[in-house]
Amino acid sequence: MEVRTIKVFTTVDNINLHTQVVDMSMTYGQQFGPTYLDGADVTKIKPHNSHEGKTFYVLPNDDTLRVEAFEYYHTTDPSFLGRYMSALNHTKKWKYPQVNGLTSIKWADNNCYLATALLTLQQIELKFNPPALQDAYYRARAGEAANFCALILAYCNKTVGELGDVRETMSYLFQHANLDSCKRVLNVVCKTCGQQQTTLKGVEAVMYMGTLSYEQFKKGVQIPCTCGKQATKYLVQQESPFVMMSAPPAQYELKHGTFTCASEYTGNYQCGHYKHITSKETLYCIDGALLTKSSEYKGPITDVFYKENSYTTTIK
């Protein structure tokens, strides 16, 4: 009895394709271990004539594949690729409408935090270190965002349907971005203890939790000093293409032309909904596939993004 075979390709990165001759009487799992086709788990399936010449994702289970996976995804987590594939199996079914010149995501599976993050990423200057993220990001900007969303979920250790947080998501993504040249110098002034300067680099240099107003941050924000008295913390120097200011959701007025974009969060910790506000020729609110415009805006804002380049204080 002759062994019926077909020729397929296996890959971990969709760049390096490895030619395989597979036995049609055995499952993919018996031949390769966990195997995925377009995100779908085909591990328990036997090869079919229609699979001839198709590319299958496999887990990096030998040295060659491990090197290829690390170079593309910059992670050695053995569960990463499987999590990416199972997320992709959902995100490829989502709709990605162009809204006001940006790629958004039609609401499904509690994905409003991903839509808000995706919209924000198209408006701030950011370059990702893992080629996987950078490639998928370019495709997302062009309207094909399924891979990018699935990668975000995998890097953030999230599953489809789980509630997510924009600030946490951005923080994970910033860790995989090139923020080497970003720098922030802060000064804390206390009447009792004097003053202390701190220099922050990388992710810490672009994120701040405690106030939404970048102007206020430049002037000074009140913080408790270690001595128990009130101290003032203010920005001395900022070198970065953008800054992200966050605070627990509270009524906040966004003035046209003073910011790049913002995240609105309605609801409580267990259950809520994100919308995205962007400042173009007027203010726009993007909620999944829905767009509304207004000249002014007041609502429960939790993150505001500002364009920056270089700032030095005039406070002496």
Rank of each mutant, 00 (worst) to 15 (best):
M1I: 04
V3S: 13
V3C: 14
R4A: 14
T5A: 12
T10G: 02
V12P: 07
N14G: 15
I15K: 14
N16M: 11
T19W: 08
V21N: 13
D23H: 08
S25E: 10
M26D: 14
T27Q: 12
Y28T: 03
G29Y: 08
P34E: 12
Y36H: 05
D38M: 08
V42F: 13
V42P: 00
P47E: 04
P47L: 04
H48S: 13
H48D: 15
H48Q: 13
H48T: 14
H51S: 04
E52Q: 11
T55I: 09
F56I: 00
L59Y: 12
P60R: 02
D62L: 08
L65Y: 08
V67K: 10
A69Y: 11
H74A: 04
H74N: 07
D77L: 06
D77S: 09
P78I: 08
S79F: 13
S79V: 13
L81V: 14
G82C: 14
R83C: 08
R83W: 07
Y84H: 13
N89H: 07
N89Y: 12
N89I: 14
N89V: 13
H90G: 14
H90E: 11
H90Y: 14
H90N: 08
K93S: 11
K95D: 15
Y96A: 05
Q98W: 11
T103D: 03
S104C: 12
K106R: 15
W107V: 01
N110H: 04
Y113V: 03
L114D: 01
L118R: 01
L118D: 04
L118K: 06
L118T: 04
L119P: 07
L121Q: 08
E125F: 01
K127T: 10
K127S: 13
K127Q: 15
N129C: 08
L133K: 01
L133F: 00
Q134N: 08
Q134K: 10
A136E: 12
A136C: 05
Y138S: 14
Y138H: 12
Y138D: 13
A140F: 11
R141T: 11
A145G: 10
F148I: 07
C149G: 02
I152E: 02
A154C: 07
N157E: 07
K158G: 02
K158Y: 00
L163A: 11
G164A: 02
G164P: 04
G164C: 02
Y172Q: 11
Y172V: 05
F174I: 05
Q175S: 09
H176L: 13
H176F: 12
L186D: 04
N187P: 02
N187H: 07
V188K: 08
V189W: 10
G194W: 00
Q195T: 15
T198M: 12
V203D: 06
A205N: 01
V206M: 01
V206A: 01
G210Y: 04
T211W: 04
L212H: 04
L212M: 02
S213N: 13
Y214A: 02
Y214I: 10
Q216T: 07
K218I: 04
Q222K: 12
Q222S: 14
P224Y: 10
T226L: 11
C227P: 01
C227N: 01
G228H: 01
Q230R: 11
T232L: 12
L235E: 01
Q238N: 01
E239P: 00
M244C: 02
M245D: 01
A247C: 08
P248C: 14
P248E: 11
H256C: 14
H256F: 11
T258F: 08
A262C: 02
T266G: 05
G267M: 14
Q270T: 15
Q270R: 07
C271A: 10
G272L: 06
G272T: 01
H273E: 00
K275I: 05
I277W: 13
S279R: 01
E281W: 00
C285P: 06
I286E: 01
D287M: 13
T292W: 05
S295H: 07
P300E: 15
T302E: 02
F305C: 02
Y306W: 04
K307S: 14
K307V: 14
E308V: 11
E308F: 09
Y311R: 08
I315M: 15
K316I: 15
